[in-house]
């Protein structure tokens, strides 16, 4: 069961958006995110939303998938809206009941914020929906490389991410095995209060950690045996190259950013 989990929320499709260079996708996402903070009118948001829907259309994904990504942040959205409604003052009084008072400024700022968060989340989840974790890691390594001069361990970060991705399924499988072994000896992971359940996880976590350390030891040995000595002097089999479609995507996105900031 655990063997078939997919990491991240990547959905494989054959689309223009999927085939873009991951570096370009990350950079565009960052630009748009910054752009979203400069939007000053609802018209701007409308254009930004249109932009996001265009990407969804080009990525051959269903918009429902993107909306689903908003669910976890629903609470934050409502919280932001409510806080602004009742505590931001200014403009005309729209509603008053006892100590509760809603003013127009509060309503506008609240809606503004909520829409902004919604657009931010759907945009970033579009990035992870259309880019596999491996591509993301690769892209990040390339993008962070120039910062190596300032002591940022770009290659090491990417290597850690790769190893984490590689070992998550292995460790999950192992956790399942240990759990079954403990259950066979009468361990109970499913009933009792939260504290009891947390406590019953100890006999699962201890062997899991021990074996993770042993694995780390073995892996380090295997990497050294294969001449791994950090990022210095290392080459890559798959080199990333920007193609014309990447530049087109950048141009398209940049024009959108300019439009929705001006509006």
């Amino acid at each position: 069961m655990l063997k078939n989990i997919t990491l991240g929320q990547y959905i494989l499709r054959d689309s223009l958006i999927h085939s873009l260079d991951p570096r370009m996708k990350i950079m565009i996402t960052m630009l748009i995110v910054i752009g979203l903070f400069f939007i000053g009118s609802f018209w701007g948001f409308l254009v930004a939303a249109a932009y996001i829907f265009t990407i969804i259309a080009f990525s051959h994904l269903s918009w429902k998938v993107v909306i689903r990504g908003l669910k976890p942040v629903m609470f934050i959205l409502i919280f932001t809206l409510v806080i602004h409604l009742f505590f931001t003052r200014g403009g005309v009084v729209l509603f008053e009941l006892g100590f509760l008072r809603i003013e127009s400024e509060g309503l506008f700022t609240g809606l503004f914020m909520a829409v902004r968060i919604m657009l931010l989340i759907s945009l970033t989840s579009l990035l992870t929906l259309t880019t596999s974790p491996i591509q993301l890691t690769d892209g990040l390594e390339y993008l962070l490389n120039p910062f190596r001069r300032f002591g940022l361990p770009a290659h090491e970060l990417a290597m850690m991410m790769t190893i984490a991705l590689r070992f998550i399924p292995t460790l999950l499988e192992e956790a399942e095995k240990i759990m079954k072994a403990q259950q066979a000896r009468g361990a109970d992971f499913e009933s009792g209060s939260i504290f009891r359940r947390a406590k019953s996880l100890v006999p699962l976590l201890v062997p899991l950690f021990l074996s993770a350390f042993r694995r780390a030891d073995d892996l380090a040995m295997a990497m050294e045996a294969r001449c791994y000595r950090g990022g210095e002097g290392r080459t890559r089999m798959k080199e990333l190259h920007f193609l014309s479609r990447d530049w087109l995507a950048l141009g398209f996105s940049a024009s959108f950013i300019i439009i929705f900031i001006i509006l």
């Binding site: 190893i163 073995d218 791994y228 089999m237």
Partner: peptide, 20 residues
């Protein structure tokens, strides 16, 4: 405990990549 990459071809490429 001796496979590093998340994809078979990347795994095979790991050693040659280290050789530069």
């Amino acid at each position: 405990n001796q496979l590093i990459a998340t994809m078979v071809e990347e795994e095979v490429a790991f050693g040659p990549e280290n050789l530069g």
